[in-house]
Structures are given as structure tokens and as C-alpha cells.
């Protein structure tokens, strides 16, 4: 445990995937051999809980297909019917293909229509909750690189970098944004699963006056209603880069699972899908009655 804690600290400091893998390579801990404890399965059903990542990794050598969809934002007024719950409005869509290399690691390639963004993500489960509570939580590290492929707008000649002195021009690096997370989840009972996720988003280019690094803490959970259905919810607090009237993302929904499928249908105020876009964008004002409908769908094909 001590070493795991140390590694956790390293993770917070560096916020990157690989060092933690190799730092632990030479110190395998096998509490199971003495106690006979077994890992807790199905802390969460899908690899994502609405907008946040979960500690779930699909079984080794399986591949999966994912569709994420956010309809347009509507209010509790005439727009609700006129835009038919937001279905008529422009929406955000992400399609993704993932491959599990092992029960602990997957890589996923995705494409989002917002800014024509291509992204590559990876998740590594480095500790799994055990039934005897010797290991009370599952821990996973997540990294995502997003590449904006949309053309940049033309810059006027009197545009400058944030220092007000260097003439502004776009470069390739400005297309990239990174997102690193440490995911801590726990299945508290048959019905309750909760998770806490520190999120670090690094954008190579931000509006003048903003920090390139945005930090957020996401908290979410699942309450099982039956064998295959559950209530899911999620809230994230963004700590910096909060211009006036900034609103944090909040979502609540239901989840259905069948063999190989996870469906999530939810109400949210976050119109983006990639974390590097969610936590750097103002969400809709829920208290003012503004919200959107969204769904996530995941289909897994596994091999024995």
C-alpha cells in the first residue's frame, strides 16, 4: 500500500502515464496469495460515466465501438417543443473505436465533430478493489491527446500573443490539447458505486488571460435500480479559468446494460464530449432551466 500511495503522489505531480507504470514494475504486491481475496467486478458497467471516465476496462483482447451524442441546449420555454427537446438543433457527436490489450489497458481512437477533433486515449488500471476491502478502491490512470483538425480563422494584423508584444500567428502545436486523469472508484455495496476524478487539461493555446492548465475535480456515481438498469449522476468542479458566469457541468441519467451493450441516456448542461472541451467551456445554466439531452452507447465484442 505504501508504494501505491507513493505512486499516487507521483501521479499527481507529473500527471503522466508511463512513469507510474515503470516505477511499479519491480515491486509487485500480491495480497491475494495470502488472503484469497478476489477483485471486485463491475464497479461501473461502461468505460465512461456520462462525461467522466471510469475505472472499467473491457476484457482482454476485446474491441468496442462507442457513440456519444449531445443534442442542442433547450430551455423550459417554447424552444422545448419547437426544437423537439433539442433534437432539431446542432449537436455534438463522437464516434470511437477501442481495443483492450489486456484486462488493465486499452487504447481508443475517436473523432468528434466539434472543431473536427481527432483524439487518442489510453487508460491503465493499476489497482483493483478487492472483495475483502484490503484494497478499498480501484485506481486507473487516463490520458487523452486531442488534435483539432479544423482550419484556424484568419488573424487580423493587429493580433498579438498574450504578452501584447509578439505578433500572433497560429502553429501546429496550437491544435493539441491534453487531458490526464486519475480515477478513484469504489463499489460500496451491491447498489452503490462512487468515483472521484482529478482532471488536468492542458491546452497549448488558450484565450488571453487564461492559464494553459485547467484543473477540475469530477465526482460521480451509480445507483443500481435492478439487474441491468441504474441511475447515474455526475458533477464536476472546475478550479481555475472561470470567467464571470462560469457554470460547472452537472448530469443525471439512466443506464441500461445488456450482454455486450451499455446504453446511457441523460440530462446534462455540458454540450461538449471531450474533457478538454467540457472543462474549458461554460456549461448551460441549469438553474435557469437550460439543459440538453445526451446519450452514450457502447458495444463490446470480446474474444474468449
Amino acid at each position: 500500500m505504501h508504494h501505491t500511495n507513493k505512486c499516487l503522489l507521483v501521479w499527481f505531480c507529473l500527471g503522466c502515464l508511463i512513469p507510474s507504470l515503470f516505477a511499479q514494475e519491480d515491486e509487485p504486491v500480491s495480497p491475494s496469495q495470502e488472503t484469497g481475496s478476489s477483485p471486485v467486478e463491475f464497479v461501473f458497467t461502461g468505460t465512461q460515466l456520462i462525461n467522466a471516465q471510469t475505472t472499467k476496462i473491457q476484457p482482454a483482447r476485446s474491441w468496442y465501438f462507442e457513440i456519444q451524442h449531445r443534442f442542442g441546449t433547450v430551455g423550459l420555454d417554447s424552444s422545448l417543443a419547437e426544437q423537439f427537446l433539442g433534437l432539431d438543433l446542432p449537436s455534438a457527436i463522437r464516434l470511437a473505436l477501442g481495443w483492450s490489450f489486456s484486462d488493465r489497458l486499452y487504447l481508443e481512437l475517436g473523432r468528434t465533430n466539434v472543431s473536427k477533433t481527432l483524439d487518442l486515449e489510453g487508460k491503465y488500471l493499476f489497482a483493483q478493489q478487492t472483495n475483502d476491502w484490503k484494497m478499498p478502491v480501484s485506481l486507473a490512470a487516463y490520458a487523452n491527446v486531442a488534435l483539432r483538425t479544423e482550419d484556424f480563422p484568419t488573424v487580423p494584423p493587429n493580433a498579438y500573443f498574450g504578452d501584447s508584444v509578439t505578433p500572433f500567428r497560429y502553429k501546429f502545436a496550437h491544435r493539441l490539447a491534453y487531458n490526464t486523469q486519475l480515477i478513484v472508484s469504489s463499489k460500496l455495496s451491491e447498489r452503490w458505486s462512487l468515483q472521484l476524478t482529478p482532471v488536468f487539461v492542458y491546452q497549448n493555446l488558450v484565450p488571453a488571460g487564461h492559464d494553459n492548465l485547467t484543473m477540475a475535480l469530477s465526482a460521480g456515481g451509480r445507483y443500481k435500480l435492478g439487474f441491468s438498469s441504474a441511475l447515474i449522476f455526475e458533477y464536476a468542479r472546475v478550479f481555475n479559468n472561470r470567467p464571470a458566469n462560469f457554470i460547472d457541468p452537472f448530469s443525471v441519467g439512466v443506464e441500461f446494460g445488456t450482454a455486450g451493450h451499455v446504453f446511457q441516456l441523460f440530462l446534462s448542461n455540458a454540450s461538449r464530449i471531450l474533457e478538454s472541451q467540457i472543462y474549458t467551456t461554460r456549461s448551460a445554466d441549469l438553474l435557469d432551466g437550460h439543459f440538453l439531452l445526451g446519450f452514450n452507447m457502447q458495444r463490446t465484442y470480446w474474444r474468449k
Binding site: C16, L17, I18, L21, F101, L105, L107, L120, E121, G122, Y124, A143, V145, V155, P156, P157, N158, A159, Y160, F161, G162, S164, P167, F168, K171, F172, A173, H174, L176, Y178, Y202, N204, L205, V206, P207, A208, G209, H210, N212
Partner: peptide
């Protein structure tokens, strides 16, 4: 794959802000 992910991450980190449109400049 993971290494590629990391390398992309570390080789091109910029700390840029902008564009800032300044009236009276340019």
C-alpha cells in the same frame, strides 16, 4: 502505443495565449 501517447504529449507543449486584438497597434 502508450509511449506514442506520451511522446506526443511531451514534445509539443506550448504555453501560448491569444490571439489578442489590440486597437491602435499593427
Amino acid at each position: 502505443g502508450a509511449a506514442a501517447l506520451l511522446i506526443t504529449g511531451l514534445t509539443s507543449c506550448e504555453k501560448d495565449q491569444g490571439p489578442l486584438i489590440l486597437e491602435g497597434h499593427g
